[in-house]
Design a protein around this nucleic acid. Structure first.
Lengths: 139, 139
DNA sequence: CGAGTATGTAATATCAGTGATTACATTTGT
DNA sequence: ACAAATGTAATCACTGATATTACATACTCG
């Protein structure tokens, strides 16, 4: 959803877009969009103004925003599920499992983000232009 | 939890371990473990027998089971959330977003699994031996 | 300055996924 | 036959994401 919203903003480069418009594109509620926009603001990916005629826009060119930044802006929680409760003290394996898994998962997450870094919003815009959406009537 | 269970099985190499024992180590319910073991069986990572004196054991040496296999065995659902409802037909961006994101996310997931492939159960056992768990009294 | 517009935010409802628990049928070894 | 252990269904609690309504706040424009 975050990628979708940012891509719409990329299309409307420079123009301020309202949460109501974005909600229409994603087919969801404006409040959901506004909460998402708050995350994107904190990550400095967009700028938002209040009041009449206001809205949001990208704070950088689409070619300078990659999907790893979007991922980090939105995914504040852990990528993998950590063991929930306390480890069983009697089991030697349980003792170190948490720390060991943290190490492994941090590495895996880094690998994932490295891959996401290779795609920018501009790449997605280009792909969208090339795809079968050429049957748009209003333009 | 799957990694934890498999590591315990690696420790008890050859022996059959019951779901009740594993549940004790992970601090959860035996039924949860049994459902997990079914996934691991389908992935051919373990072999399970029924009846008295039965249980589960690894079907391969710990050095020949990597975490990518465990990931695939357990994570049947998509790694990333796909847009839920139908796309808004009036929005040109919405049209292609789904396919484009599928491509990007498939690549990211492949990168993640490649990283997980580099760690085997044997690696985790070695790390556990080296860690501060050396204060185990019963052995 | 006042009216309208749009965001920020709280409260609440719904829904899916995961874990927890109980119960029971089935299989298997002694 | 009995005991042990898995396979499995039914149910409950909990969490996270999405949805919706309502309202306070901030800003622009006439």
């Amino acid at each position: 959803m975050a990628v979708h919203v940012l891509t719409v903003l990329a299309y409307k480069e420079g123009d301020r877009v309202t949460s109501a418009f974005l909600a229409g594109s994603v087919n969801t509620n404006p409040v959901i969009i506004r909460r998402l926009l708050l995350d994107l603001q904190r990550a400095r990916l967009i700028e938002t103004t209040k009041g009449a005629g206001a809205g949001s826009r990208l704070s950088r060119a689409p070619g300078r925003i990659n999907l790893a930044e979007v991922f980090r802006a939105v995914e504040e929680h852990e990528t993998f599920g950590r063991p929930s409760g306390k480890p069983n003290q009697a089991c030697p394996v349980a003792q170190c499992m948490r720390d060991e898994l943290d190490r492994v998962f941090a590495s895996a997450r880094a690998a994932l983000e490295s891959d996401l870094e290779r795609t920018t919003l501009a790449d997605l815009m280009k792909a969208a232009r090339d795809c079968a959406c050429s049957d748009k009537k209003n333009e």
